[in-house]
Design a protein around this nucleic acid. Sequence first.
RNA 1: GCGCCUGUAGCUCAACUGGAUAGAGCGCUAGCCUUCGGAGCUAGGCGUUGCAGGUUCAAGUCCUGCCAGGCGCACCA
Length: 545
Amino acid sequence: MKENIQEQVTNLIKSALKEAGLDPSLSEELYLDIPAESRFGDLSANVAMRLAKPLGKSPREIANNLIAEINKQIVKSSLKDDIKEIKVEGAGFINFYFSDKYFYEQLQDIVKREKESLKVNLGEEKPVLIEFVSANPTGSLSVAHARQAAVGDALANILNFLGFQVKREYYLNDQGNQINILGNSVELRMKELAGEKIEFPENYYQGEYIYEIAKQAQEKKIATRDLGDFSANFILNIIKKELDDFGVKFDYWYSQKALEKSDKIQKAFEYLKKKGFLYEQEGALWFKSTAFDDDKDRVVIKSDGSYTYLAPDIAYHDDKYKRGFRWLINLWGPDHHGYISRLKASVAAFGRDPDSLAIVIVQLATIFRDGRPVQMSTRRGEYITLREVLDEVGRDAARFFFLMRRTSSHLDFDLDVAKKQSSENPVYYVQYAHARISSIVRNSTLKLNKDTDLSVLKEKEELALIRKILQFSYILNICLKTRDPYMLTVYLQELSETFHKFYDLHRVLSDDAELTQGRLCLIEGTRIVIACGLDLLGVSKPEKM
RNA sequence: GCGCCUGUAGCUCAACUGGAUAGAGCGCUAGCCUUCGGAGCUAGGCGUUGCAGGUUCAAGUCCUGCCAGGCGCACCA
C-alpha cells in the first residue's frame, strides 16, 4: 500500500509552512480531518485559522498563501496525481479534493489484495496484554461480563489487525473469600438435599445452580474442604463454554491461586519495601500509594496476616510486565473505577510509566424486553446471563449490540429489536449488504476481472461508495485512539447504507460489459471491507441469509 | 461530604483532537416490486444540546457554578 495520504498531505503542509517562512513550531497546531460532508473535500486542514491570531492576519489570507505554496510543491511530489484541487472554504479551511484516479487506484488495490490492503501497521509488533471478563468463578457470566467480553475481544482483534502483538487474558479469582463462601453454600445445600433442616445465610450464593453442584459433589464424594475448589472448577467449565459459544477465546487463564503459591508476591513486596513504599501501621502492612497520586494509602496485608485483594494484584501486574508486555489494557466494570489510581500507583512504584496501563471502564447494559427493563437482583441470584442472551438472540446480534454504543456509555439492549430481521436491526442491515453483494457476484455471468478499468465509475453514488470504503483504516485508527471498537459498528452501518443507496439507483449487471466489470469491482471492494469489519467484531458474514 | 460517569428530537443514540447548516434509526405520513436479494430505497418535521456564566476566530465538545440521574469512596473481591 502507498504511504498514507493523510501523512503525505500533512508533510506537504508542513513544508509549505516552512517555505512561507513561518515558525515550524506553529505546525504543531496542525491537524487534518475527514469532513463530515464530502462537499467540503476529502481532507480538511484548519492551520490557517489556528495561525490567524499569532500572525495577525485573516485566516483566508493565510490559507491562500499556503495553498499557493502547496501548489508549487505538489507538482514535484508523488501527490501530484492524487489531489485534484485545493480550495479555501468557510472561515478559512484548506480543503483537499482527491482525484478520481486516486479513488480508482485505491479501490483496485483493495479488490486485488483484499484484507491485506486494509492493514496499516501502527503497532510495530508491540506486545499488548488485554485482560478482560475475569469474573469470579462463582456463577454464570452476566450481561455485564458479556459486554466486556464483546468489547475486549473486538478491541483485541482490531489491535492485532493494526500490527500489535495481542494476547487475551482472564484473571481467575480461584482463591479467597468468595470461593470459600461458594464452597460453604454448596456444603449447606448438600445437607439440605440430605434432608437436614438448614438456614441459608443471605450472603451465600442463592442460585439454583448451587443445588446442581451439590448433587454432583455428593455423587463424586467430594471432601468438605475441597468443595470450594470443586465448585469453582465446575463453574469455570460452564464459563468457558459460555465464552466459547460467544466466540471469545483466551490465550491465558491466570490463576490467582498459582500466583499466591509462587514467590511473586513476596518478591514484589521485597522490591517495594526496599524502595520505601511499604510500611507497618496498626498491625497491618500498607502500600504508600499516596506517593503516586492516590487519595490514601492502601492496606496490602491485613492485621490478621492475610492479603487484601490489592496484594496479589500488585504482583500480578508486575508479572505482566515481566512476561514482556509493554502495553497493558484492563477492562473493568464501573464499580471498580475507584481502584484505578491505586493500581496505577503500584505500576509507578516499580518505576514504570502508569500510562502503559490503560484501564477501560465498560459501562453496564440494561436488558429490555417488551419495552421495559428486566429487573435484576444479584442478591437473590437473579440476573440475566450471557447464556440467556445468546439463546434468545444468537451470537451475531449479541456481539454487535454490545458494541453498538460507546463503551463508556450506558447501553440499552433491546432483546426484541435484536431478534428482528429488518432494517430496524443494525446487524441484519450490515449482514444483508454483505449477502446481497455475494448474491450479485454469484449471479453474474461475467467473472470478476480485478484489472478492469475502473474509470467507468462516474456516478455520484459510485464515488461516494469508494470514498466511504477508503475510510476504513481511518476508523480503525479512531478505535485505537479511543480504545473502543464501537466506532466500527457505526461505520459499518454507514457503509452498508451507502451501498444500499447505490444499489437502488444503479444496476450492477447490465449489457455494458465494461460498466458491469467496474461495478463488480466496486461492490466486491465494499464486500471485502464489510467482511473485514465484521470479522474484527466477531460477527459472521453470511453469503446467504 | 468527596471523586468518577451521564444529561442532545417523542424514544434509542451519533457528532472522531473544539470546526462548516447538530445528524441517524425507531415511531408517524406518503410513495417505489414484469429488472442483479423489498431483510432494500425515496420524501415529509421533530432541537433554547439540563440551566447560568466564561475561554476561543469557532463550544454539544474546554473551564466555573448550579440542577437531575447512575456508580464509587473497606484491613470485600
